[in-house]
């Protein structure tokens, strides 16, 4: 076909698919291409044949503008991410409903945990109080013995000292046990509450044109 026919058909094939300015630019480019061909002794028909049909060329231009540019790929990846984020929102909704449904059980279990915690804390407090009491008692007894006030006989002083040491040892043991149980309870809670990382495969799917060979 002639240059003018070609350019007209190319313009028709591009109309409404891109801005007027872009279309004008493209037509200008191809008009230059025909003119250059003519300058080199090529006929308009030869040039037109070398280019392929105007419709094919238009498809090429449009698909270059959409399918393969980095911005188009970025857009595709962004869309993939959007899907991932939306589905995770639905996951959260489902989780909320699940929690509501199971709330009685959760409250009961939570209550048990709180009770256990309370017991541990109470035991710890009691132990600390006993420890202080024992220390104070043994200190008072020791002072009396040293000062020789003679309030009590040496054997009673020795006995109270032994009792004080025993209470001290027992308190220390109790504190250790309490600390260990608190620590394992804490680790258990941390494991339950730690957010697990979600891995979603991202597949920016790039369309492959079928081979023309």
């Amino acid at each position: 076909m002639t240059k003018l026919e070609y350019l007209k058909q190319l313009e028709d094939a591009l109309k409404n698919r891109m801005s007027r300015k872009d279309i004008d630019d493209i037509i200008r480019d191809y008009a230059e291409y025909f003119a250059e061909g003519q300058r080199q002794g090529k006929s308009e028909f030869e040039t037109a044949r070398g280019l392929g049909t105007p419709q094919e060329v238009a498809e090429q231009i449009v698909s270059e503008g959409m399918g393969n540019t980095q911005s188009a790929i970025n857009a595709k990846v962004k869309n993939t991410w959007k899907k991932v984020r939306t589905s995770s929102i639905w996951n959260k909704v489902f989780l909320v409903i699940l929690i509501l449904a199971l709330s009685p059980f959760i409250l009961a279990g939570g209550g048990l945990i709180l009770a256990a915690l309370g017991i541990v804390v109470g035991a710890l407090a009691g132990v600390v109080a006993a420890l202080f009491g024992a220390l104070l008692a043994s200190f008072a007894v020791a002072v009396c013995g040293v000062m020789g006030i003679g309030l009590m006989s040496p054997s009673i002083v020795a006995l109270s000292l032994i009792v004080a040491v025993g209470m001290l040892a027992g308190s220390v043991l109790g504190i250790c046990l309490a600390c260990m149980s608190i620590r394992s309870l804490w680790r258990l809670l941390k494991n339950l509450l730690r957010p697990r990382p979600r891995y979603k495969p991202i597949n920016p799917h790039i369309e492959e044109e079928s081979e023309e060979e």
């Binding site: 630019d25 493209i26 480019d29 191809y30 230059e32 291409y33 250059e36 061909g37 080199q40 070398g50 280019l51 392929g52 094919e56 060329v57 090429q60 231009i61 270059e64 503008g65 393969n68 540019t69 980095q70 911005s71």
Partner: peptide
């Protein structure tokens, strides 16, 4: 310029001339 580019490439490969300008255009836009 456009024609020069097409001829240079077509000299060495069997590429379809029609595909060069769209690539030129896209590379320019990018």
């Amino acid at each position: 310029y456009g024609y020069e580019i097409v001829q240079s490439i077509a000299r060495h490969t069997d590429i379809n001339e029609g595909t060069v300008y769209p690539i030129l255009r896209r590379l320019t836009v990018d």
